[in-house]
Design a protein around this nucleic acid. Structure first.
Length: 488
RNA sequence: GGCGACGUACCCAAGUGGUAAGGGAGAGGUCUGCAAAACCUUUAUGCGGCGGUUCGAAUCCGCCCGUCGCCUCCA
């Protein structure tokens, strides 16, 4: 590995050096969405954050197995394990099969995060595809005495698992004292949680089990699926801070009670998104879906905006802030265009072991970037390093310094690798677009150059402004040449 | 009520004991037919407030104010 990685472990509440369960490999599980609605900007933050983390692990040489589930069993909208199943509620509204609702929003989810440059997980297991594993896990818990059946429901007995609360810092007594919920009489202890639920009449999604027809409790799927693909003990489990309790706490209890082994080594939690300072909620009408956001901003800009703050910091979404981020990103992308104009080879590779120190100190910038990323994935600091490098490069270009094709190529590849491959804030496609379009634009530039020579500035300006309308921005250089960039 | 975070310039945001990164916006300048881009200069004696520890604190401690999250489905 190129470097040691330190990460903040929610379980121990401190930064720790990452030591994998198995040398050279990382097993990571991240809680995926419940697909009953369009994804919002909060989902965006979570999945972009973990995407950057996964990309970084791969960059430094780890073999990563990334699992992210799709929750396609609805679970309940209400407290006290009552209320409607969210997916079924949606299905009844539209008079369609619940699985059709799942399909619709699962596709929507992937379309959205694809646009954000989030790499697909290696495996996207679905809860309904792992009912057998979940029943088996519940069966083990019952047979080991950690869970009990009551009226067709199966509950985890919190009193049998003394470590319950170790992740969230909660005490079972406090939970009972502060309980705002009506306690189900059949539970032994108010803090006990359902791992299998009886399907009442009219409940559509149901499966046979040793306890009659029913469906799995929410927490069970993540235990069953993570351990199936990553083993009983694995490296990293991630998710939103709002899932720390009860979801992740319950996962630990179920998994460790069933296997007798430590479940997860490092817990990573990303912080939440607020909109104009307040929590997103449908009732407040400030619910920003990714679809909405993409109407106003380029998805890459949204990604950049997300990564410009730390994953463990809360992020406040506002048009003003995203606009500001977009302008900054534009500058970053612009340097690549400039380097291309200097003849940079698009396919050049960087040798990180052997970076130049003059005239741009890439050695130092790389060390700083790496240190930032290795320190709990500090993407804001890493981005700041890229901006410092950019300033250096522009300064040389702007003051007429000599940038050889070889240097331009190294700078280009360096920026592409760090900003593109790892952070994902530079889209992969060529800035200059397709050949025919490029030739056409060059033709317009020549025509405009003739107009300028004749002092026909009216025509010259018309050409420039009309091209700008279709997203082609012309820039006249000092030496009389004109370059362009495509800004969409 | 219980638990936990956070509060850094006009906006966004790093920094967890050694004297305030970075981005946006603003101001002035260089370049230019004009733009745009780029570069240079500039914008917090101060990091919510008040105390304390220390040679030294945005960073540690205490209290207060404010915001957010969790305790109930949630990324």
């Amino acid at each position: 590995m190129k470097t040691d990685i330190y990460l903040y472990n929610s379980l121990t509440r401190q930064k720790e050096k990452f030591v994998p369960v198995e040398e050279g490999k990382v097993g990571i599980y991240v809680c995926g969405p419940t697909v009953y609605n369009h994804s919002h900007i909060g989902h965006g933050k979570s999945y972009v954050s973990f995407d950057a983390i996964v990309r970084f692990f791969r960059f430094v040489g780890y073999r990563v197995l990334y699992i992210q589930n799709i929750t396609d069993v609805g679970h309940l909208t209400d407290n006290a394990d009552e209320g409607d199943d969210k997916i079924e509620k949606e299905a009844k509204k539209d008079r369609v099969n619940p699985m059709a609702v799942v399909e619709t929003f699962m596709r929507s989810y992937f379309e959205n995060v694809d646009k954000l440059g989030v790499g697909r997980p290696d495996i996207s297991p679905r809860a309904t595809g792992h009912i057998i594993e979940q029943i088996e896990l519940a069966r083990i818990l019952v047979s080991h005495g950690y869970a009990y059946e009551a009226g067709g429901n199966v509950y985890f007995d919190v009193s049998k698992f003394p470590d319950y609360g170790k992740l969230s810092g909660k005490k079972v007594e406090d939970l009972i004292a502060g309980a705002r919920i009506d306690v189900r009489g059949e539970k032994h202890n108010p803090a006990d949680f359902a791992i299998w639920k009886k399907a009442e009449a009219g409940h559509i999604m149901r499966w046979p089990s040793p306890w009659g027809e029913g469906f799995p409790g929410w927490h069970l799927e993540c235990s069953a699926m993570s351990m199936k693909y990553l083993g009983n003990s694995f490296d990293i489990h991630g998710g939103g801070l709002d899932n720390q309790f009860p979801h992740h706490e319950c996962e630990i209890a179920q998994s460790e009670a069933a296997t007798g082994k430590p479940f997860v080594k490092y817990w990573l939690h990303n912080n939440m998104v607020t909109v104009n300072g307040t929590k997103m909620s449908k009732s407040l009408g400030n619910f920003v879906t990714l679809k909405d956001a993409f109407m106003k901003f380029d998805p890459t800009t949204i990604r950049f905006f997300i990564l410009q703050s730390h994953y463990r910091s809360p992020l406040d979404y506002s048009d003003e802030a995203v606009e500001g981020a977009g302008k900054g990103l534009e500058r970053l992308k612009n340097v690549l265009v400039q380097l291309m104009d200097l003849g940079a080879d698009e396919n050049a590779r960087v040798d990180f072991e052997n970076l130049p120190e003059e005239p741009v100190n890439l050695r130092r910038y790389y060390d700083e970037w790496l240190a930032a990323m290795a320190d709990d994935f500090n993407t804001p600091s890493a981005i700041a390093v890229l901006f410092e490098m950019l300033k250096d490069v522009n300064s040389i270009i702007g003051t007429g310094g000599v940038v050889t094709v070889a240097l331009a190529s190294v700078l280009y590849a360096f920026t592409r690798a760090l900003a593109g491959d790892v952070l994902g804030i530079i889209p992969a496609e060529s800035q200059h677009g397709r050949e025919v379009e490029t030739d056409l634009i060059r033709l317009m530039i020549e025509m405009r150059a003739d107009a300028r020579k004749d002092k026909n500035f009216k025509l010259a300006d018309t050409i420039r402004s009309e091209l700008q309308k279709i997203g082609v921005v012309l820039e006249d250089k000092k030496d009389g040449t004109t370059t362009f960039k495509v800004s969409r």
